[in-house]
């Protein structure tokens, strides 16, 4: 099993003809993801050539793409100015999971988008996220397929390359993953740690969870309360940004300590109080997971 995406995922790529969209579509098809359609306004009737000669039909609109292909998931590679519109179009077309890779989407756009998507019953992952991957089954987004392997650990992270680092250590220690989810580095994200924890707790194959957080906001603190009250699985945590100065944005739009709120120390303390094992170094994440699984 896995969460959010698996072999039944039927994916539409929004912005399939762009530079990033076409590059990652090839990577996703290569990994085995069923890419059933692409959308680029004005290019209906054309098709996208996959790595082994696959032909992915392109449509003008999400509505047409879903009607023709019964797609259930979409991934968004359109520029920031158009990302909000693309997400709402996908939600309107009945897509259940919308993965927004785009970085730089205006925050007030996302406030409207999240409200809209909630009303439509769609789940948004991101924006400003690397997507997700269920090893051996499906990948949606930009996570590198070659560093993951199938196994019992669920991974949730606000970061991209730091996730790769953690997963790489897990894979090298022969600890595979059910699903790795990059929830994104923006201040307003559609899917939180708690949403992922809920899904992993219901997944019979997930035996442990890794949460990789960072400074800014209170998502990790809420996740800690949720773990304490609802999660029976062992959880290992890591927080990036202990040396970050206050009131400075550390790359991610959401990685900012505002006044005295959102520090790494406060998040690590919340994790520890909830019984979450906190790794002090990225490499220690895999060591702690190994110890938990051996119990």
């Amino acid at each position: 099993m896995a969460i959010f995406i698996d072999e039944n995922t039927r994916l539409v790529v929004q912005g399939i003809t762009g530079r990033d969209g076409s590059f990652h579509t090839t990577q996703m098809i290569d990994y085995g993801t069923q890419v059933v359609a692409g959308v680029t306004p004005g290019k209906s009737g054309q098709s996208f050539a996959g790595p082994k000669g696959e032909k992915v039909p392109i449509f003008n609109s999400m509505d047409a793409a879903v009607a023709a292909t019964s797609a259930n998931t979409s991934v968004i590679y359109v520029p920031p100015a158009f990302a909000a519109g693309a997400i709402m179009e996908a939600a309107d077309a009945g897509i259940r999971l919308i993965v927004a890779i785009t970085e730089g989407v205006p925050v007030l756009d996302m406030a409207r988008v999240h409200a809209f998507a909630r009303d439509k019953g769609a789940r948004v992952l991101g924006p400003n996220c690397p997507g997700l991957i269920s090893p051996g089954k499906c990948k949606v987004g930009i996570l590198p397929g070659q560093i993951v392997t199938q196994g019992p650990v669920g991974v949730i992270s606000r970061s991209g390359t730091l996730t790769y680092e953690a997963v790489y250590h897990l894979t090298n220690a022969e600890i595979g993953q059910t699903t790795c989810v990059g929830i994104g580095g923006d201040p307003l994200i559609g899917t939180t740690f708690v949403d992922c924890l809920e899904a992993f707790a219901r997944d019979p194959e997930t035996k442990a969870v890794v949460m990789i957080g960072e400074i800014g906001g209170t998502d990790e603190q809420e996740a800690a309360s949720y773990v304490r009250e609802h999660v029976r699985l062992p959880v290992v945590g890591f927080i990036a940004g202990q040396t970050a100065p206050p009131d400075r944005r550390m790359g991610h739009a959401g990685a900012i300590i505002s006044g005295s709120a959102g520090t790494a120390v406060e998040k690590m303390a919340a994790f520890e109080a909830a019984g979450i094992q906190v790794a002090k170094r990225p490499a220690e994440i895999a060591e702690l997971v190994a110890a938990e699984l051996d119990r």
């Binding site: 970061s159 940004g241 040396t243 550390m250 790359g251 990225p282």
Partner: peptide, 22 residues
């Protein structure tokens, strides 16, 4: 990557050094 960059600064500090930048 921003997350790895923060984790790198933290590790510099963990091993007794001081990061000059993010």
């Amino acid at each position: 990557g921003a997350g790895l960059a923060m984790a790198t600064m933290d590790l510099v500090s963990f091993y007794g050094g001081e990061p000059a930048n993010f």
